[in-house]
Design a protein around this nucleic acid. Structure first.
Lengths: 145, 145
DNA sequence: TAGAATTTTGAGACGGCTTATCAATTTCAA
DNA sequence: TTGAAATTGATAAGCCGTCTCAAAATTCTA
């Protein structure tokens, strides 16, 4: 019985920390919990969100920690406009994105067939996939008119 | 008989200019030709490239013009890392990437079936795809051992 | 073709997002 | 508990892209 529903990610983080001689800190734990509650978030948004309960948490720490999560495979950075979105990898499962270049609207989708083909391509090249990123850019119905 | 192999894009640009009361300038023509020669490029890269022959071309002009091309449907901006890549829309030969998280090796691939499925997903959501980005992250044969 | 109206250009200032710096603090292995 | 090493927070610095504005170029009109 896990102590928390985020035990899996917590383990992944601790394993990464151990492997790189990094330390487990109050801030990292705090940010991890806040991060795992969302599907995706920007550093700035998380800063404001956490400021309510932890007003002394620095913005730089949030950036550093979210980038750490990316290294640990818990988060994935996605650049949109001038900002960076940090996606919760476990939350999104295997959701990919349709992004409207007109209005910025984002539609999530999932397609098993595509995933299967990805596996085939990877296998053919001797790779074992850990994660992937698929973004389709185009115009949505509204923006086409 | 077209005067240049870029006649189609030139027409698209001129049509857009006319429709918006914009002017056809030496710089716009210059940048269009330089742009169409590549599959994708950043403003900065184009700046350095053109500086050899036109040292007085301003970086701001390049940004403005590449954004103009986006409006005209000739180019398409894509955010990559902290930079903006301007993709040449007319280039169809799009390749995707397999990226080894162990050693950083990048293998390019192309898969028509995946592209077809992408089109289907987009259509189902009312999108018309302009471009896409597909990256598979994993371990290559060597790094798995 | 000349002249006027309008747009564009180039150079640098500016602003937003992210990373670097560094002294003080915290973690953790011994 | 102690001390080496990593982390933090505040802020400076950096980067990328846009804005500003006077001068130049383009287009329109006659």
């Amino acid at each position: 019985m896990p102590l928390s529903k985020y035990a899996k990610e917590m383990d992944a983080l601790k394993e990464h920390l151990a492997k790189h001689q990094l330390k487990f800190t109050r801030q990292r734990e705090l940010i991890l919990h806040a991060f795992l509650r969302q599907e995706h978030i920007t550093a700035e948004a998380m800063y404001h969100q956490l400021a309510k309960t932890d007003p002394h948490l620095g913005l730089a720490t949030i950036y550093r920690t979210l980038n750490l999560f990316c290294d640990a495979g818990i988060a994935q950075a996605r650049h949109f406009g001038s900002q960076t979105q940090y996606d919760n990898v476990s939350h999104k499962g295997h959701h990919d994105h349709l992004i409207c270049t007109g209005c910025g609207r984002i539609v999530e989708f999932e397609n098993c067939e595509i995933e299967k083909l990805q596996e085939e391509v990877a296998a053919r090249n001797g790779f074992s996939i850990q994660t992937h990123r698929l973004e389709l850019y185009g115009l949505c119905t509204r923006c086409r008119h």
